[in-house]
Design a protein around this nucleic acid. Structure first.
Lengths: 161, 161
DNA sequence: CATATATAGTGGTATATGCCACTAAATTCA
DNA sequence: TGAATTTAGTGGCATATACCACTATATATG
């Protein structure tokens, strides 16, 4: 309210989807991390472990794609989990370039333990935002995360000058 | 399609708002960073500089709150910009604990230079997602970023066991 | 088959972000 | 006023994330 004197920049503030999604992601990270605090793991680590479990021994490449994450970023992110014995890598027998990922028994136990906390956090999220809006949001975010969206965005590049 | 055998975890994958927003934020970061690549600065840095400009010499605390960012994280994030002479800190004359932030002349020039690239990126985003959905998304993200949302979420804590 | 090219991962470097412990300064309160 | 408390920032450490250069392996091609 006190800072409207720069109209040209308010446009960015209000309309920049990239800024907006980052702000919201920071907020949500704080809230979810708080909810999972007692487990000593972060929301991001829970997501990663959950996807590893879900994806049945994916290669690093496959996992990175599913997470919409750079392959090397994934490698770095996995290191603490490997160090702590929650996740392990093993070579793909058919392709010696590839490595596959799985939860260790302890990793699986921790993931299951976190599931309850996650569910509580998710219920609180839905309650705070409203179930309908929450569903709508996830649909939109899933589309933005898709390869299809990235291609649309990139193909618009040539004609927007 | 090939990975539905873990029904209990598909729930997390599909419904976890925290995972979903991070995936989308990573994707969007890639796309916006690509659009601003020629300036040598990232989308996050553009957002930060824009908010600094908009907020008329805020204290670090005020800026951190506006960015929904931890104060110390803000301090770290500002360092490259200060090092490169785009942003400067100066003491608040009334409160010697506080420091205020502003763009340097060069910082202002860079921010203005990036504005055009940002606008192109934002137009591509709106075109790829649809104007209506895009507006709706920003409204929702703004609410999630709000203090009010954080309080709602936290107040639900006591009763969700 | 031998070489050219494409693919999967790793390690380095840089930014992004958060928590904690600590310092300095302001404010409160006995 | 002087001690206790609160507030603003800093620095250290840890995770999150990206890009680049490099290695090893696989595939394609002449």
């Amino acid at each position: 309210m006190a800072n409207d004197q720069h109209g040209q920049d308010d446009g960015v503030w209000l309309y920049c989807s990239n800024s907006a999604i980052r702000r919201a992601a920071r907020r949500l990270g704080q809230l979810y991390d708080g909810a999972m605090e007692s487990t000593g793991l972060k929301g991001t680590q829970f997501s990663l472990m959950t996807q590893i479990r879900r994806a049945a021994e994916p290669t690093l490449k496959e996992l990175a794609e599913a997470m919409v994450m750079d392959l090397s970023a994934l490698g770095h992110t996995l290191k603490p989990l490997i160090r702590d014995g929650l996740v392990e890598l093993f070579p793909d027998p058919r392709d010696r370039r590839a490595k596959r990922v799985r939860l260790t028994p302890e990793g699986l136990a921790r993931q299951q333990e976190m599931l309850g906390l996650w569910q509580q956090a998710q219920e609180r999220f839905d309650a705070a935002l409203g179930t309908k809006q929450s569903q709508e949001l996830r649909r939109t975010l899933a589309f933005i995360s898709s390869q299809e969206f990235a291609e649309s965005f990139r193909h618009l590049e040539a004609r927007d000058t």
